[in-house]
C-alpha cells in the first residue's frame, strides 16, 4: 500500500500541466507566443467543447491555434484576434462569455438567486424573532380546560 502511494505521488509529481501546443506551432517571438498562449487558454475548442484550444488535441483546435498566431503576427491586438474567431464561431468560442444583453441571465442569475435566498431568509428570521405574545384570559381558560380533561383520563 505504501509503495502504491509512493508510486502515485511520483506519477503526480511528474505530470506537468497538460498542453497540446506542439513546438512547430510556437512563434519565435516569446512575447507574441506568450500572448497567443494566454489568449488560447480562453478560447473554446468547438470539437471537444469543454477544453480550451490550448489544451485540445483536436485537428481543428490546432488550426485555430495557428490562425490565432497568424493574426497576432499580422499585428492584430488581442481583442481583434479573438474577434476574428468570434466572427466565425460566435461568442461560444470564448470560455469567458462577454457581459451583454443576451448573457445578463448568466452573469446576474447567481446574484438574483442569492438576493432571493437572502430575502427569503430575512422574512423567515423576522417571523421567528420576538417572544410569543402572552395568552389572554380566554386562552388561559381554554388551556386550563384542556389540561384538566387530559388529567381526567
Amino acid at each position: 500500500m505504501r509503495r502504491l502511494i509512493l508510486l502515485a505521488a511520483v506519477l503526480a509529481a511528474m505530470a506537468g500541466p497538460v498542453r497540446a501546443v506542439t513546438p512547430d506551432e510556437q512563434l519565435p517571438d516569446p512575447k507574441l507566443e506568450a500572448r497567443a498562449r494566454s489568449l488560447s487558454r480562453d478560447l473554446r475548442c468547438v470539437v471537444c467543447q469543454n477544453q480550451s484550444i490550448d489544451e485540445s488535441d483536436a485537428a481543428l483546435a490546432h488550426d485555430l491555434r495557428i490562425i490565432l498566431r497568424e493574426r497576432l503576427l499580422a499585428g492584430d491586438t488581442d481583442d481583434q484576434a479573438v474577434a476574428y474567431l468570434v466572427q466565425r464561431y460566435g461568442n461560444f468560442v470564448r470560455l469567458k462569455p462577454p457581459f451583454q444583453a443576451d448573457t445578463l441571465a448568466l452573469w446576474l442569475g447567481p446574484l438574483a438567486v442569492l438576493l432571493a435566498g437572502g430575502a427569503g431568509a430575512a422574512i423567515y428570521m423576522r417571523g421567528r424573532s420576538g417572544p410569543p405574545a402572552p395568552l389572554d384570559a380566554a386562552e388561559e381558560a381554554e388551556l386550563a380546560a384542556l389540561i384538566n380533561t387530559d388529567e381526567a383520563h
Partner: peptide
C-alpha cells in the same frame, strides 16, 4: 486542404 474556407464558414466538423 488547409481547412480555411471551412473555418471561415464556421465549420466545426
Amino acid at each position: 486542404r488547409t481547412g480555411r474556407a471551412g473555418i471561415d464558414l464556421g465549420v466545426s466538423g
